[in-house]
Nucleic acid binder design. Sequence first.
DNA 1: CTTAGATATTGATAGACGTCAATATACATC
DNA 2: GATGTATATTGACGTCTATCAATATCTAAG
Lengths: 116, 116
Amino acid sequence: MTVGVELALTDVSAAACCPEGLTAPMDRQTAEQLAKLLKAVADPARLQLLALINSSPGKSACACDLTQPLGLSQPTVSHHLKVLKEAGIVDREQRGTWAWFSINQSRLQQIAQALA
Amino acid sequence: MTVGVELALTDVSAAACCPEGLTAPMDRQTAEQLAKLLKAVADPARLQLLALINSSPGKSACACDLTQPLGLSQPTVSHHLKVLKEAGIVDREQRGTWAWFSINQSRLQQIAQALA
DNA sequence: CTTAGATATTGATAGACGTCAATATACATC
DNA sequence: GATGTATATTGACGTCTATCAATATCTAAG
């Protein structure tokens, strides 16, 4: 069982985070939630994934088309997609054998605005 | 000598990064530069520091006033301020014995806009 | 139900990172 | 220059993380 991990990860997407941005002092707990979201984006492979998905037709892409451009192994890409999904930054849709990913744009905006 | 580290860190602030945001595919090198900037912000202590500085009178604060609110040791806070400085996110000014820090707002905006 | 292909999970490993105690350096004052 | 205070650096330690190879699970089609 990996309940602890599951909870920790869903905590991230549960964060209705930081409407005040950086304009007011931030308590440690709030800072940790926001940091988790930012960490999900602060990785070169995941940034490449987001850019790839975003620039795909319909702004959604099959996982099968994401491995080769990154030059990483399939499990590694799968891992990164999971991190993005659990941060609420991408959505996953099953289409037959394939997994299609799209970007939760408002969630991305939310993260960006937390730096305002 | 720590030339390697110095170079790696100044590389960060040298990154005139990512005017296209996530609208086009991103090569690994560009992704690594942007990831470095995001990592500099993706830490709870550093987010608290930015929020504290930003909400201080004149939007600048003495290092001596930043240790206690964070509940971390002085060397740790000094380390975090160094990371932020080397990412170009804060500016440092020496005033007598004290070190005053302010936020490079445009650099923060730049990072936020890279997620657009 | 077996096969085949796509995706996810597990286990292992190397490197990065946050933190502190101890120490060093910088700066002003006497 | 000696002292006191503020800040930075060093060294060590535990934890987290990115990555891969191997394996497992899922899904559709025979």
